[in-house]
Design a protein around this nucleic acid. Structure first.
Length: 496
RNA sequence: GCGGUCGUGGUCUAGUGGUUAUGAUUUCGGCCUUCCACGCCGAAUACCCGGGUUCGAAUCCCGGCGACCGCACCA
Protein backbone atom coordinates (compact mmCIF):
# COMPACT_ATOMS: atom_id res chain seq x y z
CA UNK A 1 0.00 0.00 0.00
CA UNK A 2 1.37 3.36 -1.00
CA UNK A 3 0.82 5.97 1.64
CA UNK A 4 0.20 9.57 0.84
CA UNK A 5 2.39 12.12 2.57
CA UNK A 6 -0.65 13.07 4.61
CA UNK A 7 -1.06 9.52 5.88
CA UNK A 8 2.65 9.20 6.55
CA UNK A 9 2.77 12.39 8.61
CA UNK A 10 -0.38 11.40 10.47
CA UNK A 11 1.00 7.93 11.23
CA UNK A 12 4.26 9.29 12.60
CA UNK A 13 2.28 11.84 14.61
CA UNK A 14 0.17 9.07 16.04
CA UNK A 15 3.15 6.93 16.95
CA UNK A 16 5.14 9.71 18.54
CA UNK A 17 2.39 11.26 20.63
CA UNK A 18 1.87 14.35 18.56
CA UNK A 19 -1.83 13.76 18.01
CA UNK A 20 -4.43 11.03 17.86
CA UNK A 21 -8.19 10.69 17.24
CA UNK A 22 -10.42 11.80 20.11
CA UNK A 23 -12.16 8.94 21.88
CA UNK A 24 -10.07 6.55 19.82
CA UNK A 25 -10.79 3.52 22.03
CA UNK A 26 -14.49 3.96 21.19
CA UNK A 27 -13.78 4.14 17.48
CA UNK A 28 -13.24 7.89 17.42
CA UNK A 29 -15.44 10.63 16.07
CA UNK A 30 -14.77 12.01 12.61
CA UNK A 31 -13.30 15.47 12.69
CA UNK A 32 -12.00 15.44 16.24
CA UNK A 33 -8.39 15.00 17.30
CA UNK A 34 -6.56 15.33 20.59
CA UNK A 35 -3.02 16.61 20.85
CA UNK A 36 -0.66 14.28 22.70
CA UNK A 37 2.24 15.32 24.93
CA UNK A 38 4.58 16.15 22.06
CA UNK A 39 1.92 17.81 19.94
CA UNK A 40 0.80 19.89 22.90
CA UNK A 41 4.33 21.19 23.42
CA UNK A 42 4.65 22.12 19.76
CA UNK A 43 1.21 23.72 19.83
CA UNK A 44 2.04 25.72 22.96
CA UNK A 45 5.25 26.95 21.41
CA UNK A 46 3.43 28.05 18.29
CA UNK A 47 0.80 29.84 20.32
CA UNK A 48 3.45 31.56 22.45
CA UNK A 49 5.36 32.65 19.39
CA UNK A 50 2.18 34.15 17.99
CA UNK A 51 1.28 35.86 21.23
CA UNK A 52 4.76 37.32 21.59
CA UNK A 53 4.77 38.80 18.11
CA UNK A 54 1.20 39.96 17.73
CA UNK A 55 0.22 40.84 21.30
CA UNK A 56 3.16 41.27 23.68
CA UNK A 57 5.26 43.26 21.24
CA UNK A 58 2.41 45.61 20.39
CA UNK A 59 1.19 48.24 22.80
CA UNK A 60 -2.11 48.61 20.95
CA UNK A 61 -3.26 44.98 21.05
CA UNK A 62 -5.18 43.46 23.97
CA UNK A 63 -5.81 39.79 24.43
CA UNK A 64 -9.10 38.44 25.73
CA UNK A 65 -10.33 34.96 26.42
CA UNK A 66 -13.98 34.33 25.66
CA UNK A 67 -16.41 31.51 26.20
CA UNK A 68 -17.15 29.08 23.43
CA UNK A 69 -20.87 28.79 24.15
CA UNK A 70 -22.95 31.86 23.33
CA UNK A 71 -26.69 32.58 23.28
CA UNK A 72 -28.54 32.37 20.00
CA UNK A 73 -29.27 36.13 19.57
CA UNK A 74 -25.53 36.60 19.02
CA UNK A 75 -25.65 34.41 15.97
CA UNK A 76 -28.93 35.80 14.80
CA UNK A 77 -27.25 39.20 14.67
CA UNK A 78 -24.02 37.89 13.19
CA UNK A 79 -25.93 36.15 10.43
CA UNK A 80 -24.60 32.68 11.21
CA UNK A 81 -27.96 31.37 12.30
CA UNK A 82 -29.85 32.33 9.15
CA UNK A 83 -27.09 31.35 6.90
CA UNK A 84 -26.43 27.97 8.39
CA UNK A 85 -29.65 26.25 9.19
CA UNK A 86 -30.88 25.89 5.65
CA UNK A 87 -33.22 22.92 5.41
CA UNK A 88 -32.12 20.95 2.37
CA UNK A 89 -33.00 17.75 0.62
CA UNK A 90 -31.11 15.60 -1.79
CA UNK A 91 -32.40 13.74 -4.80
CA UNK A 92 -31.22 10.33 -5.92
CA UNK A 93 -28.70 11.94 -8.29
CA UNK A 94 -27.14 13.87 -5.44
CA UNK A 95 -28.43 17.37 -6.21
CA UNK A 96 -28.91 19.29 -3.00
CA UNK A 97 -31.81 21.72 -2.92
CA UNK A 98 -32.89 24.22 -0.32
CA UNK A 99 -36.43 23.13 0.38
CA UNK A 100 -37.61 26.27 2.16
CA UNK A 101 -37.07 28.44 -0.88
CA UNK A 102 -38.42 25.72 -3.16
CA UNK A 103 -41.68 25.50 -1.20
CA UNK A 104 -42.06 29.25 -1.04
CA UNK A 105 -41.45 29.68 -4.76
CA UNK A 106 -43.50 26.78 -6.08
CA UNK A 107 -46.35 26.67 -3.61
CA UNK A 108 -46.36 30.19 -2.22
CA UNK A 109 -46.55 28.68 1.26
CA UNK A 110 -44.45 30.39 3.92
CA UNK A 111 -41.80 27.93 5.05
CA UNK A 112 -40.23 30.07 7.73
CA UNK A 113 -40.10 28.42 11.15
CA UNK A 114 -41.33 25.02 9.99
CA UNK A 115 -39.54 21.92 11.20
CA UNK A 116 -37.79 19.53 8.84
CA UNK A 117 -40.57 17.00 9.28
CA UNK A 118 -43.25 19.56 8.43
CA UNK A 119 -41.36 20.64 5.32
CA UNK A 120 -40.96 17.03 4.32
CA UNK A 121 -44.71 16.50 4.70
CA UNK A 122 -45.39 19.48 2.43
CA UNK A 123 -43.04 18.07 -0.19
CA UNK A 124 -44.74 14.68 -0.05
CA UNK A 125 -48.19 16.20 -0.18
CA UNK A 126 -47.47 18.39 -3.20
CA UNK A 127 -45.12 15.87 -4.81
CA UNK A 128 -42.30 18.38 -5.20
CA UNK A 129 -39.32 17.07 -7.13
CA UNK A 130 -35.72 18.00 -7.66
CA UNK A 131 -35.65 21.25 -9.67
CA UNK A 132 -32.50 20.13 -11.50
CA UNK A 133 -33.39 16.65 -12.71
CA UNK A 134 -36.97 15.97 -11.63
CA UNK A 135 -36.11 12.99 -9.42
CA UNK A 136 -37.93 12.55 -6.11
CA UNK A 137 -36.41 14.28 -3.10
CA UNK A 138 -35.22 12.35 -0.10
CA UNK A 139 -35.62 13.38 3.53
CA UNK A 140 -35.24 16.98 4.65
CA UNK A 141 -32.22 17.78 6.74
CA UNK A 142 -30.96 21.00 8.19
CA UNK A 143 -27.33 21.26 7.34
CA UNK A 144 -26.61 23.45 10.30
CA UNK A 145 -23.04 24.53 10.67
CA UNK A 146 -23.31 25.22 14.36
CA UNK A 147 -23.54 22.83 17.29
CA UNK A 148 -26.55 23.84 19.34
CA UNK A 149 -27.63 23.09 22.88
CA UNK A 150 -29.93 24.45 25.59
CA UNK A 151 -28.84 26.26 28.71
CA UNK A 152 -30.31 26.22 32.20
CA UNK A 153 -33.83 25.64 33.45
CA UNK A 154 -35.29 27.95 30.83
CA UNK A 155 -33.58 25.85 28.15
CA UNK A 156 -32.29 28.95 26.40
CA UNK A 157 -30.97 28.09 22.99
CA UNK A 158 -27.23 28.49 22.64
CA UNK A 159 -24.53 27.53 20.17
CA UNK A 160 -20.88 26.73 20.20
CA UNK A 161 -19.21 29.59 18.39
CA UNK A 162 -18.19 28.89 14.79
CA UNK A 163 -15.41 31.47 15.08
CA UNK A 164 -13.69 33.18 17.99
CA UNK A 165 -14.40 36.60 16.51
CA UNK A 166 -17.88 37.14 17.93
CA UNK A 167 -16.70 37.36 21.55
CA UNK A 168 -14.47 40.23 20.55
CA UNK A 169 -17.31 42.21 18.99
CA UNK A 170 -19.52 41.46 21.97
CA UNK A 171 -16.92 42.72 24.42
CA UNK A 172 -15.74 45.56 22.24
CA UNK A 173 -17.11 48.39 24.37
CA UNK A 174 -15.86 46.84 27.62
CA UNK A 175 -12.35 46.37 26.32
CA UNK A 176 -12.24 49.82 24.82
CA UNK A 177 -13.35 51.62 27.96
CA UNK A 178 -11.45 49.42 30.43
CA UNK A 179 -8.20 49.83 28.53
CA UNK A 180 -8.97 53.43 27.51
CA UNK A 181 -8.07 52.28 24.03
CA UNK A 182 -7.96 54.76 21.18
CA UNK A 183 -8.30 53.81 17.54
CA UNK A 184 -6.57 52.01 16.05
CA UNK A 185 -6.32 49.08 18.41
CA UNK A 186 -6.54 45.33 18.22
CA UNK A 187 -8.26 42.71 20.32
CA UNK A 188 -6.74 39.27 20.11
CA UNK A 189 -8.09 35.92 21.13
CA UNK A 190 -6.73 32.40 21.15
CA UNK A 191 -9.42 29.79 21.54
CA UNK A 192 -11.47 27.02 20.10
CA UNK A 193 -14.27 27.14 17.59
CA UNK A 194 -16.71 24.56 16.30
CA UNK A 195 -18.21 23.85 12.91
CA UNK A 196 -20.30 20.83 12.12
CA UNK A 197 -18.67 20.10 8.78
CA UNK A 198 -20.57 17.66 6.61
CA UNK A 199 -17.43 15.69 5.96
CA UNK A 200 -14.21 16.50 7.76
CA UNK A 201 -11.12 15.66 5.76
CA UNK A 202 -7.38 15.46 5.71
CA UNK A 203 -6.51 14.75 9.31
CA UNK A 204 -6.38 17.93 11.34
CA UNK A 205 -6.76 20.21 8.33
CA UNK A 206 -10.56 20.17 8.33
CA UNK A 207 -11.90 19.32 11.73
CA UNK A 208 -15.09 20.04 13.63
CA UNK A 209 -13.39 21.49 16.68
CA UNK A 210 -10.37 23.64 16.03
CA UNK A 211 -8.10 26.26 17.48
CA UNK A 212 -8.03 29.80 16.22
CA UNK A 213 -5.76 32.74 16.86
CA UNK A 214 -7.51 35.89 15.79
CA UNK A 215 -7.15 39.60 16.03
CA UNK A 216 -9.81 42.15 15.26
CA UNK A 217 -8.09 45.39 14.40
CA UNK A 218 -10.46 48.29 15.00
CA UNK A 219 -9.57 51.17 12.75
CA UNK A 220 -10.99 54.61 12.15
CA UNK A 221 -12.40 54.39 8.60
CA UNK A 222 -10.64 57.68 7.83
CA UNK A 223 -7.27 56.21 8.81
CA UNK A 224 -7.14 52.95 6.90
CA UNK A 225 -3.97 54.10 5.20
CA UNK A 226 -2.22 55.12 8.36
CA UNK A 227 -0.95 51.89 9.89
CA UNK A 228 1.65 52.17 12.67
CA UNK A 229 3.35 49.02 11.39
CA UNK A 230 3.97 50.38 7.91
CA UNK A 231 7.49 51.67 8.43
CA UNK A 232 8.72 48.32 9.72
CA UNK A 233 6.99 46.21 7.09
CA UNK A 234 7.08 48.29 3.90
CA UNK A 235 9.83 46.24 2.30
CA UNK A 236 8.47 42.79 3.13
CA UNK A 237 7.91 40.79 -0.02
CA UNK A 238 4.52 39.15 -0.61
CA UNK A 239 3.36 36.56 -3.09
CA UNK A 240 -0.07 37.52 -4.50
CA UNK A 241 -2.63 35.70 -6.57
CA UNK A 242 -4.88 38.42 -7.93
CA UNK A 243 -8.50 38.03 -8.97
CA UNK A 244 -7.41 38.64 -12.57
CA UNK A 245 -4.92 35.79 -12.40
CA UNK A 246 -7.66 33.50 -11.11
CA UNK A 247 -10.09 34.52 -13.85
CA UNK A 248 -7.43 33.97 -16.47
CA UNK A 249 -6.65 30.50 -15.19
CA UNK A 250 -10.31 29.59 -14.80
CA UNK A 251 -10.98 30.45 -18.43
CA UNK A 252 -8.56 27.68 -19.29
CA UNK A 253 -10.34 25.63 -16.61
CA UNK A 254 -7.11 25.44 -14.69
CA UNK A 255 -6.51 26.08 -11.01
CA UNK A 256 -2.86 26.77 -11.61
CA UNK A 257 -2.89 30.43 -10.70
CA UNK A 258 -0.03 32.73 -11.59
CA UNK A 259 1.29 34.80 -8.74
CA UNK A 260 3.14 38.08 -8.53
CA UNK A 261 5.77 39.20 -6.09
CA UNK A 262 5.21 42.61 -4.52
CA UNK A 263 6.49 44.40 -1.45
CA UNK A 264 3.99 45.71 1.06
CA UNK A 265 4.73 49.17 -0.26
CA UNK A 266 4.16 48.18 -3.90
CA UNK A 267 0.98 46.28 -3.10
CA UNK A 268 -0.50 49.46 -1.66
CA UNK A 269 0.68 51.62 -4.52
CA UNK A 270 -0.68 49.26 -7.16
CA UNK A 271 -3.94 48.90 -5.21
CA UNK A 272 -3.64 45.12 -5.06
CA UNK A 273 -4.85 45.46 -1.48
CA UNK A 274 -7.71 47.70 -0.35
CA UNK A 275 -5.65 49.72 2.11
CA UNK A 276 -2.35 50.14 3.91
CA UNK A 277 -3.56 48.32 7.01
CA UNK A 278 -4.38 45.18 5.09
CA UNK A 279 -1.00 45.22 3.37
CA UNK A 280 0.79 45.54 6.71
CA UNK A 281 -1.20 42.73 8.26
CA UNK A 282 -0.19 40.47 5.38
CA UNK A 283 3.44 41.54 5.66
CA UNK A 284 3.33 40.90 9.39
CA UNK A 285 2.23 37.34 8.68
CA UNK A 286 5.04 36.73 6.23
CA UNK A 287 7.55 37.88 8.83
CA UNK A 288 5.96 35.57 11.40
CA UNK A 289 6.11 32.67 8.98
CA UNK A 290 9.85 33.02 8.62
CA UNK A 291 10.13 31.29 12.00
CA UNK A 292 7.94 28.32 11.23
CA UNK A 293 10.00 26.21 8.85
CA UNK A 294 7.69 26.65 5.88
CA UNK A 295 9.50 27.74 2.70
CA UNK A 296 8.50 31.13 1.29
CA UNK A 297 7.60 29.71 -2.09
CA UNK A 298 4.96 27.53 -0.43
CA UNK A 299 3.11 30.61 0.82
CA UNK A 300 0.82 32.89 -1.15
CA UNK A 301 -1.97 35.37 -0.60
CA UNK A 302 -5.03 34.74 -2.69
CA UNK A 303 -7.51 37.55 -3.20
CA UNK A 304 -10.85 35.88 -2.65
CA UNK A 305 -13.16 36.07 -5.62
CA UNK A 306 -16.38 38.08 -5.21
CA UNK A 307 -18.53 34.96 -5.06
CA UNK A 308 -16.37 33.66 -2.21
CA UNK A 309 -16.79 36.70 -0.02
CA UNK A 310 -19.80 38.17 1.74
CA UNK A 311 -21.37 41.36 0.41
CA UNK A 312 -19.94 43.52 3.18
CA UNK A 313 -16.36 42.47 2.53
CA UNK A 314 -13.91 45.12 1.44
CA UNK A 315 -11.52 42.44 0.29
CA UNK A 316 -10.43 39.11 1.74
CA UNK A 317 -6.96 37.65 1.35
CA UNK A 318 -6.35 34.06 2.36
CA UNK A 319 -2.86 33.06 3.26
CA UNK A 320 -2.57 29.71 1.55
CA UNK A 321 0.12 27.12 2.07
CA UNK A 322 1.06 24.58 -0.52
CA UNK A 323 0.54 21.10 0.88
CA UNK A 324 0.77 17.66 -0.68
CA UNK A 325 -2.93 17.83 -1.56
CA UNK A 326 -2.97 21.38 -2.89
CA UNK A 327 -3.05 24.96 -1.68
CA UNK A 328 -4.90 25.27 1.60
CA UNK A 329 -6.20 28.29 3.49
CA UNK A 330 -4.39 28.64 6.81
CA UNK A 331 -5.13 32.27 7.58
CA UNK A 332 -8.18 34.22 6.50
CA UNK A 333 -7.60 37.95 6.32
CA UNK A 334 -10.89 39.76 6.04
CA UNK A 335 -11.61 43.44 5.69
CA UNK A 336 -15.08 43.39 7.22
CA UNK A 337 -15.73 47.12 7.20
CA UNK A 338 -18.15 48.02 10.03
CA UNK A 339 -20.42 45.05 9.38
CA UNK A 340 -19.97 43.20 12.68
CA UNK A 341 -20.31 46.16 15.00
CA UNK A 342 -23.28 47.48 13.01
CA UNK A 343 -24.98 44.07 13.14
CA UNK A 344 -24.56 43.83 16.90
CA UNK A 345 -25.70 47.40 17.36
CA UNK A 346 -28.87 46.47 15.56
CA UNK A 347 -29.23 43.13 17.31
CA UNK A 348 -28.53 44.32 20.84
CA UNK A 349 -29.87 47.87 20.58
CA UNK A 350 -26.63 49.02 22.21
CA UNK A 351 -24.48 51.79 20.86
CA UNK A 352 -21.05 50.45 19.98
CA UNK A 353 -19.80 53.58 18.26
CA UNK A 354 -16.97 55.69 19.62
CA UNK A 355 -16.99 59.38 20.16
CA UNK A 356 -14.18 60.92 18.17
CA UNK A 357 -13.96 64.71 18.27
CA UNK A 358 -17.68 64.98 18.79
CA UNK A 359 -18.46 62.59 15.97
CA UNK A 360 -19.91 59.10 16.33
CA UNK A 361 -17.61 56.65 14.60
CA UNK A 362 -18.18 52.94 14.08
CA UNK A 363 -14.71 51.49 13.56
CA UNK A 364 -13.84 49.35 10.59
CA UNK A 365 -12.46 45.91 11.22
CA UNK A 366 -9.69 43.92 9.61
CA UNK A 367 -9.50 40.38 10.87
CA UNK A 368 -6.56 38.03 10.45
CA UNK A 369 -7.69 34.61 11.59
CA UNK A 370 -5.13 31.81 12.00
CA UNK A 371 -6.22 28.20 12.01
CA UNK A 372 -3.96 26.60 14.62
CA UNK A 373 -4.48 22.97 13.69
CA UNK A 374 -3.95 23.37 9.98
CA UNK A 375 -0.95 25.55 10.66
CA UNK A 376 0.53 22.79 12.80
CA UNK A 377 -0.18 20.27 10.08
CA UNK A 378 1.49 22.53 7.50
CA UNK A 379 4.54 22.84 9.74
CA UNK A 380 4.69 19.08 10.26
CA UNK A 381 4.35 18.35 6.56
CA UNK A 382 6.93 20.89 5.51
CA UNK A 383 9.45 19.86 8.14
CA UNK A 384 8.91 16.13 7.70
CA UNK A 385 12.01 14.30 6.46
CA UNK A 386 11.47 10.72 5.31
CA UNK A 387 14.02 7.95 5.70
CA UNK A 388 16.85 8.06 3.21
CA UNK A 389 20.34 6.67 2.65
CA UNK A 390 21.93 8.98 5.17
CA UNK A 391 19.40 8.43 7.90
CA UNK A 392 17.46 5.25 8.49
CA UNK A 393 14.52 6.90 10.20
CA UNK A 394 12.02 9.69 9.66
CA UNK A 395 12.48 12.98 11.44
CA UNK A 396 11.12 16.52 11.70
CA UNK A 397 13.26 19.52 10.95
CA UNK A 398 11.14 21.67 13.25
CA UNK A 399 12.60 25.11 14.02
CA UNK A 400 14.16 25.32 17.48
CA UNK A 401 11.53 27.79 18.62
CA UNK A 402 8.77 25.25 18.00
CA UNK A 403 10.53 22.00 18.80
CA UNK A 404 8.99 20.09 21.72
CA UNK A 405 12.28 20.11 23.69
CA UNK A 406 15.52 22.02 23.44
CA UNK A 407 17.64 18.95 23.90
CA UNK A 408 17.87 15.37 25.04
CA UNK A 409 20.56 14.38 27.57
CA UNK A 410 22.12 10.96 27.01
CA UNK A 411 24.67 8.89 28.86
CA UNK A 412 26.55 7.06 26.12
CA UNK A 413 26.86 3.83 28.04
CA UNK A 414 24.99 2.02 30.70
CA UNK A 415 27.46 2.85 33.50
CA UNK A 416 26.65 4.49 36.84
CA UNK A 417 29.38 7.19 36.52
CA UNK A 418 28.07 8.29 33.14
CA UNK A 419 24.46 8.20 34.21
CA UNK A 420 25.22 10.20 37.30
CA UNK A 421 26.99 12.91 35.34
CA UNK A 422 24.25 12.95 32.73
CA UNK A 423 21.46 13.24 35.24
CA UNK A 424 23.30 16.08 37.00
CA UNK A 425 23.53 17.95 33.72
CA UNK A 426 19.86 17.17 33.13
CA UNK A 427 18.90 18.77 36.46
CA UNK A 428 21.07 21.80 35.85
CA UNK A 429 19.49 22.34 32.44
CA UNK A 430 16.02 22.10 33.92
CA UNK A 431 16.92 24.58 36.65
CA UNK A 432 18.07 26.96 33.96
CA UNK A 433 14.67 26.80 32.35
CA UNK A 434 15.58 24.58 29.43
CA UNK A 435 13.10 22.03 28.17
CA UNK A 436 15.13 18.84 28.22
CA UNK A 437 14.48 15.14 28.46
CA UNK A 438 16.69 12.33 29.65
CA UNK A 439 17.03 9.02 27.87
CA UNK A 440 19.25 6.18 29.02
CA UNK A 441 17.54 3.21 27.43
CA UNK A 442 18.84 1.40 24.40
CA UNK A 443 21.83 1.88 22.18
CA UNK A 444 22.89 5.38 21.38
CA UNK A 445 21.84 5.35 17.72
CA UNK A 446 18.34 4.39 18.64
CA UNK A 447 18.16 7.23 21.12
CA UNK A 448 19.33 9.73 18.52
CA UNK A 449 16.64 8.38 16.24
CA UNK A 450 13.96 8.75 18.89
CA UNK A 451 14.97 12.35 19.48
CA UNK A 452 15.07 13.13 15.76
CA UNK A 453 11.63 11.68 15.24
CA UNK A 454 10.04 14.35 17.40
CA UNK A 455 12.30 17.08 16.11
CA UNK A 456 14.54 17.68 19.13
CA UNK A 457 17.29 19.91 17.73
CA UNK A 458 20.20 18.92 20.01
CA UNK A 459 21.40 15.76 21.71
CA UNK A 460 23.98 16.03 24.47
CA UNK A 461 26.02 12.89 25.09
CA UNK A 462 28.06 12.18 28.19
CA UNK A 463 30.83 9.73 27.28
CA UNK A 464 33.87 8.30 29.11
CA UNK A 465 35.94 11.31 28.09
CA UNK A 466 33.46 13.46 30.02
CA UNK A 467 34.73 11.84 33.22
CA UNK A 468 38.27 12.90 32.46
CA UNK A 469 37.92 16.45 31.15
CA UNK A 470 34.38 17.60 31.99
CA UNK A 471 33.30 17.86 28.37
CA UNK A 472 30.40 16.41 26.44
CA UNK A 473 29.33 16.33 22.83
CA UNK A 474 26.40 18.16 21.29
CA UNK A 475 24.92 16.50 18.26
CA UNK A 476 23.06 18.69 15.80
CA UNK A 477 19.82 17.16 14.56
CA UNK A 478 20.02 18.65 11.08
CA UNK A 479 23.58 17.69 10.22
CA UNK A 480 24.36 14.87 12.64
CA UNK A 481 27.62 16.67 13.39
CA UNK A 482 29.00 16.60 16.90
CA UNK A 483 30.96 19.25 18.71
CA UNK A 484 32.62 18.93 22.10
CA UNK A 485 32.09 21.51 24.85
CA UNK A 486 32.73 22.02 28.52
CA UNK A 487 29.76 20.62 30.43
CA UNK A 488 29.49 23.85 32.40
CA UNK A 489 28.97 25.74 29.14
CA UNK A 490 26.33 23.43 27.72
CA UNK A 491 23.23 24.96 29.33
CA UNK A 492 24.33 28.35 27.97
CA UNK A 493 24.92 26.95 24.49
CA UNK A 494 21.52 25.25 24.48
CA UNK A 495 19.66 28.46 25.38
CA UNK A 496 17.67 29.42 22.30
C1' G B 1 -24.20 13.27 2.54
C1' C B 2 -23.20 9.98 -2.11
C1' G B 3 -19.63 6.61 -4.55
C1' G B 4 -14.85 3.85 -4.51
C1' U B 5 -10.87 1.46 -1.67
C1' C B 6 -9.75 -0.18 3.05
C1' G B 7 -9.75 -1.71 8.66
C1' U B 8 -4.97 -7.91 12.10
C1' G B 9 -0.07 -6.25 18.41
C1' G B 10 2.30 0.82 19.29
C1' U B 11 3.77 0.71 13.78
C1' C B 12 4.11 -2.09 9.09
C1' U B 13 2.41 -6.75 7.59
C1' A B 14 1.11 -12.65 6.35
C1' G B 15 -3.22 -15.10 6.64
C1' U B 16 -10.08 -16.71 1.17
C1' G B 17 -14.31 -21.03 6.62
C1' G B 18 -11.11 -25.15 11.26
C1' U B 19 -3.75 -21.93 12.57
C1' U B 20 -0.87 -22.48 19.58
C1' A B 21 -3.09 -16.05 14.08
C1' U B 22 2.82 -14.92 10.38
C1' G B 23 6.97 -12.07 10.26
C1' A B 24 9.46 -7.54 10.99
C1' U B 25 10.06 -3.41 13.82
C1' U B 26 8.97 -0.79 18.31
C1' U B 27 8.48 -1.05 23.69
C1' C B 28 10.15 -3.37 28.32
C1' G B 29 13.91 -6.54 31.14
C1' G B 30 18.86 -8.60 30.91
C1' C B 31 23.78 -9.13 28.72
C1' C B 32 27.47 -6.85 25.52
C1' U B 33 29.25 -2.20 23.99
C1' U B 34 33.68 4.33 23.46
C1' C B 35 28.50 7.49 19.21
C1' C B 36 23.95 7.17 14.79
C1' A B 37 17.55 2.21 15.10
C1' C B 38 21.73 -3.02 11.52
C1' G B 39 25.64 -7.81 18.66
C1' C B 40 22.86 -11.37 21.60
C1' C B 41 18.91 -13.51 24.97
C1' G B 42 14.09 -13.09 26.95
C1' A B 43 9.18 -10.91 27.62
C1' A B 44 4.75 -8.10 26.44
C1' U B 45 1.00 -6.52 23.16
C1' A B 46 -3.56 -7.63 17.77
C1' C B 47 -8.19 -9.81 14.24
C1' C B 48 -12.70 -1.86 14.58
C1' C B 49 -17.90 -2.64 16.85
C1' G B 50 -22.81 -5.14 16.62
C1' G B 51 -25.89 -8.66 14.37
C1' G B 52 -26.50 -12.85 10.89
C1' U B 53 -25.08 -17.51 8.05
C1' U B 54 -22.39 -21.97 9.81
C1' C B 55 -20.99 -27.54 13.83
C1' G B 56 -17.20 -23.65 13.42
C1' A B 57 -16.05 -16.62 11.19
C1' A B 58 -10.07 -12.58 11.36
C1' U B 59 -12.00 -14.90 6.74
C1' C B 60 -18.77 -15.00 4.02
C1' C B 61 -23.42 -11.57 4.45
C1' C B 62 -25.94 -7.11 6.65
C1' G B 63 -25.61 -2.72 9.63
C1' G B 64 -22.64 0.77 12.28
C1' C B 65 -17.97 3.35 13.31
C1' G B 66 -13.36 5.04 11.41
C1' A B 67 -9.40 6.16 7.54
C1' C B 68 -7.96 7.64 2.56
C1' C B 69 -9.56 9.26 -2.47
C1' G B 70 -13.38 11.56 -5.82
C1' C B 71 -18.06 14.49 -5.98
C1' A B 72 -20.77 17.73 -3.00
C1' C B 73 -20.11 20.93 1.29
C1' C B 74 -16.45 24.35 3.68
C1' A B 75 -20.87 32.15 5.61
Amino acid sequence: MVKSLLEEVMTVSLRRGILYPSAEIYGGLAGFYDFGPIGTRIRNHLVNLWRTRFVENRDFVYEVSGNTLLPSPVFKASGHLNHFTDPSAECSKGHVTRVDTLIEERLKIPAEGKTDKELEAIIQEHKLRCPVCGDPLKEVKSFGLMFGTNVGGERRQAFLRPETAQNIFLGFKRVQTAMRAKLPFGVAQIGRSYRNEISPRQGIVRVREFGQMEIEYFINPDQLNDCPLFEDLAQVSLNFVTREAQEKAMKKSSTDYASIQLTVHEAIKKKVVPNQWMACILGDEVEFFKHLGIPEKAIRFRHMRPEETPHYSGGNFDLEIHLSFGWKEVIGNAYRRDHDLQSHMKGSQKDLSLDIEGKKVVPHVIEPSFGIDRLIYAILEHTYRPKDDTRGWTWFQIPNTLAPYHAVILPLLNRPELEEKASTLFSVCKQQGLAVIYDASGRIGRRYARADEIGIPKAVTIDPQSLEDETATIRDRDTGNQTRHLISQIPIILKP
